[in-house]
Structure formats: C-alpha cells, structure tokens
Design a protein around this nucleic acid. Sequence first.
DNA 1: CTTTCTTGTTGAATCATTTGAAAAACGATG
DNA 2: CATCGTTTTTCAAATGATTCAACAAGAAAG
Lengths: 373, 373
Amino acid sequence: MAIRKDGKNSFARTTLADVARESGFSPSTISIVLNEAPISKYVAATTKEHIRAVAKRMDYRPDAFGRSLRKRRSHTIGVMIFDISDPFCTLILQGIEKSLHPTEFLPFIVDAHNRREQFERYMAMLLEYRVEGLIVVANWLFIDIETLSELERHRVPTVLVGSEMRSGPLGSVLVNNEQGGYLALQHLYSLGHRKIAFIRGPRQLWDSSRRWDGVLRFAAEVGLKMPKKWVVELTGSSESNSSFDEGRSLTSTMLQRDPGFTALLAFDDLTAFGVVRALRNFGRRVPEDCSVVGFDDVPHAALFNPSLSTVRQPMERMGSIAVGRILKEIQQDGEVEQEKGRVDLLPPELIQRESTAAIAQKGKLLPKNTRKH
Amino acid sequence: MAIRKDGKNSFARTTLADVARESGFSPSTISIVLNEAPISKYVAATTKEHIRAVAKRMDYRPDAFGRSLRKRRSHTIGVMIFDISDPFCTLILQGIEKSLHPTEFLPFIVDAHNRREQFERYMAMLLEYRVEGLIVVANWLFIDIETLSELERHRVPTVLVGSEMRSGPLGSVLVNNEQGGYLALQHLYSLGHRKIAFIRGPRQLWDSSRRWDGVLRFAAEVGLKMPKKWVVELTGSSESNSSFDEGRSLTSTMLQRDPGFTALLAFDDLTAFGVVRALRNFGRRVPEDCSVVGFDDVPHAALFNPSLSTVRQPMERMGSIAVGRILKEIQQDGEVEQEKGRVDLLPPELIQRESTAAIAQKGKLLPKNTRKH
DNA sequence: CTTTCTTGTTGAATCATTTGAAAAACGATG
DNA sequence: CATCGTTTTTCAAATGATTCAACAAGAAAG
C-alpha cells in the first residue's frame, strides 16, 4: 500500500534532506538551525524562521540512529533490573526516571527476570546500544560477583543500587543495612519486648549479613538473649512471592516449637506479611499478642492490615543519587577515579505503624490483655 | 587517561573495520559471515572459522546504531506505561517481556508518570528511535482520545492494553469489564447479600462504565435494589495511592450515612484495601460483618489480611496477546487492515478468598436476614 | 585596489554497518 | 586459448545526521 511511482514509500519519515529540499537550504544549515548550534548565531533570522516553519509543517523528527552514529553518543543510560514485579525495585526506578527526566538522557530499562542467561543477553544488548552509563538495581541479587565485575571492562560508568559488592571496583548506593537492623531491634526492645523471634535473610545475600550485624550489635549492647529456637533463616529462592511463603512457614514452625515470643523481626516487608498471616492462623493477634517489624517500607506496607511498622529504605532517593553519580562520571569522563568505587550508605528510618505495640504490662501473652494502648 | 598517540581512545569499541584489518578480509566478508547472510554459504569454511575466531578474540560487538541505520530497522517495540508503580501494569509488563524474549525484538519501556507532557516527550522519543511497534499500557488513562488516535498517523502498529477506546482505529486487548462487574455482584449475591454498597470507578474512565454496566445487568436480572445512599464514585486523581485513600473516605461516609450494608463491591483492589481499613476503623470485621470484593487481583491481594476476594484480570496474558498482535501486524506490514481495530476481550475470573463470606444466618446488623441463599 | 573583517551558507567527510553488483580466482570445457 | 561456470571475495553506495573547513558577498580599512 501507498508506494509511490518513484519507489519510495510515501509514508517514509521525513529526513533532513527532505526539509532541505523543501526549504531551499542545505542540510547543514537545517541541522545547525534546528540544533541551535553555536554557529547558528550567524544564520539570518529570517532563514531560521523559515526553516523552523518548514520542519514543523513536514513534521520532521531527527533520526536517533543517524544522529547517535555521527555524534558517537547515545544519550541513554541503561537500567538493569532483576524483577520488575518487586515493589522495592519499582520505587527505585521511579527515582531514576524522575531525576533523568530533566536531563538529556533517557533510561533504557531491561528486566533480567532473575535469570543469568537473560542478564547476559540484555547486557550485550545495552552495550550494542552504547549506553553511556549503567545502573544495576540489585534488589535480590544472586548473580556472581564475577559477572558484575566484568562490567568494568566495558568502560561504561556503572553504579549498583540497593546492594553492595564485598570487594570490587563498582560504586554503589544503598541503605545502611547495619544501622537498619540495629534500629529495628531497638524499636522492639524499647517497646518492652524481650522475647523476640528473628527471621534472617538468606545467607548468600551480603546485605542480609550486614543487617544481621546491626541486630547483633544492639543485642550485645543491651545484653539481649537470642535463643536458637527463635532464630531462623530464609533460603532465598528467586521466586516472586517466596519470602511471603517462607515467612509464613518459618513462623508456623517457630510457633509450634515454642510460641512464647512477643515480637518478631522479619528480614523484609514481604516476609513480615507472611509472618502476620501465620500468626493470625495460629490465633495470635498483631500487635496485641505479637509485634511484627519489617524492612524496606514497600508501598503496600502502609495499606496492609495491620499497617506494618518497618525500617524504611529511601528508595526513590537511592535511585536519584545513583543517577547523580552516573551523570557526574559521564561528565568527568573517568578523570576522577577515586569516585568510582565509592559506596554511598544512606540512613534508614524507622516507621512506626500498627503492627508493633508496647508489651502488655501484666499481660502474660496467652491470657487476655486489657490495656489501653 | 589511555589516549594513544594516534589520537584514538584505546578503549574505543572494536568496529567491523578493526576486525577486517586484523583478519585480513574485507568488512563485507566479515559482515556476511557474522550475520550468516544467505550468501555466506559461498564463503570458504576456513575463512568463516578464522573470522569468527578473530571477532571473538577482539570482543567485537556490532554497533546498533550503524546497523539500524543501514537496515532501517530498530528491532525494538516501544512500551508506554503511565505509572510503573501500579502493580496492575507491572504484571502486564512481565507478560510483554516474556513473550518478546524469544523474538528478535527488544522492549523499549518508558514511563509517562501520568503526565501528558511526559507522554508526548517520550512518544516523540520512541518515534525518533523508530520503534517498529507500540504497546500502550493504559492502566489509568486520562489522556484524551485525540492524543491516542494521533498514534495512527505515525504508521507504527499500535495496541492498547487494559483499556479500550470508545471509537477509533486503535486495536486493544483487555478484560471483559462488563462480565467482570457481573461476576463480582453475582458472587456477593450468591453469598446471600442483599444490602450491598458500591464504589464505582471514576466517570471519565470508560472501563469504569463497562464494569458498572455489568453490575447493573446482574442487579436487573435478580431485581436487586441499589439505594443511592450506598452508591458512590471515585473521582480519579492520578496520585499513586489515591484510590486507597478515596476508598477509605468514601466508605467512612457511607458508614456514617447508613452502616446497614453487609457487603461492598469496590472498583478495584486498591480501593478495596481502603474499604477494609475504613470498616476496621469503624469496628466492622471483614468478612464477618461485611464482605468486600475487589477487581484486578493485583499480586498483593492474596497476601492482604484478610486475603481479598476479587475479579482477576489475566494481566500477563493480556501482555503476551498484545505482543502477538503487534508482531503479526509488523510481519504483515499493514496488509491485513481488518485486524487493526480489533478488540480482544478476555474473560475475567472470580477469585474467592477470605474477604467475602456467606451472610450470617441469624444476622445481627439489622434485624432479620434469615434466608438460606 | 588590495586586504581584512563580518555575516551567512554550504561541501565534503565522518560515524558503523549492510548489500547488490561486480570483480577476481580457478578449474573445466569446447 | 578463449570461453564458461563456479566459488570466493570485495567495491562502492547507501542509510541520516553533524561538523569543520571553506567559500561567497559585502563592508570597512589600509
């Protein structure tokens, strides 16, 4: 359909040459005018006007490929995520988008679905598209360190968000997990809880250990006992709702073992949701019979019943800080090496909601509690 | 750093010419071999091997810009979303990604943040990048019809997911909202509820009306009365959690007006979460005192307390069907016009969970409700 | 009258790749 | 020895835009 006699598809896009022909000026002039290049100050005002009018009338749009090829710039920042359905990563994405918006850069988002093979394929893709920077949103990261270090090889400024490499040249932006763990336990402790159960994160996850370090530090400071029967650990499959299911089953196990705890500290919000479900099924009310605290503050934490007390990660800010660092690296073109491996640790914030409450004064747990707040 | 005497950055990417020089063959041959073009069957096997080896050794990656410019194909499908933090849209995205994965196409995702200005900017961007197809995920769509119809002008095959245009040339893939509304009310009715409150969707939203049509159809069939005092409507701001907040405040209003309803049908899941919150604050238990049904089945609906009964939209499938249609249109290159404006209506599915229950036999709320079903 | 300066515009090269046409190389055929 | 048919490889053009050096025209200066 719609092929003209001259062989050209009549719907073919308008090119610079078309505008040139139509306006009577050369392609060079058109380009200079439309890009408002420095030399354009020598172009006659009438010419400028005329060219702009013609370009608009013909609905001219510069071709990204031609342009990028010539300028050797793509004006894109690659954003690699591992699971778009994770709300944690969603908010970071929003932070990234928002701070990229006023710039000349465009995010190129790809989702590896937690699959190594896809990670690699998309990675190659991003390099072919010559992204000028790369942000890796590592929500739940089991890709080996090795694979990530390889990123450096490509000489593309890279920042890791939400996770940290034990060693290695990659810069990262993340919450201070150690402090977060500390805050969470401190919160429960200050509400009077002494019999506290714990669901740690998966051992393979580095953040998980840091968070646990914070918990241990507070426990040591106040001399809290942490009996083994009340400390369990997620296995960390990469399935979507696995931490909910695991939170639930681990809690059930602990309840059957010894239901005497009055509070539970969960690795993250999704786990905490599972915990609440298990407690309810066991006939425990939250927070009256057992307080629960999560980690992350995903958007749904506030909507949940009961709304979840949790340690907030400033996710949107993490995204925008990552963008800031990438832009800086791009501008400085690798001059300031010392910036590269830097780790930005942002402070977490304890958000108190309904799922935690002071322990019953005279309440024995099992009997009924008749207090006010 | 690392600029060689010849002025070239030593980290510059390897080009086809580099491989040609290194291997002793011409760029043409390299291209033919690496792309396994038809003529490559005439290339000597030893040559092929040699070229592949050199390319691999030099870590050659074809440049997407050079290639796309020459081939006049981008191998990308634009995906326009309006709010990435909406879980509804997240699942559709996953469906899209998954079905695009085995193809030669790559999704180019942009998020307009519900802002018209950004929508237009990103739209222009996608056209500059010559996307070969476009999927618009219209979760919560207040962009005028006009703007969307304009898409057609660009001769890019376009499919709308999750919404439908009253009229216009754009094809779409969405759930049968009318049937969904019908199912939701039928569910509550079959549980014995007769005093039912309703929170409609915003009037500007076309889907909202269709859903409501289904509700009315069922009500008419069984002769259910729907007093005005128990029918309210969302205003539909584009804020992130607005439907939660609105669901909550509208429910509070209705409860104060007349708390006699035993069930509530909400426009969507997020609204339903707000409803549950309001009921709890009012001292009503869900589902014992009031059943609540949502719409969508977002991932968190199952994790919520109580887990939410709802009408499921097959979101992942919607995404993959959209991809299927786009790919077909691309291949047929506009030959089969009749496909274009087609509307795929997928069947919704009622998911019964904890938030709905049969009405109490010896009912408390208002005096007697002593029937069976 | 030549030179210089300013203003306004353009030609040609360049970016990395693909591709149809053409050119080698080579043995075989008449 | 010219001609032909294969097989193997390369030339050169094309894709769409940007940019630098250069050119043209007119005015001003020497």
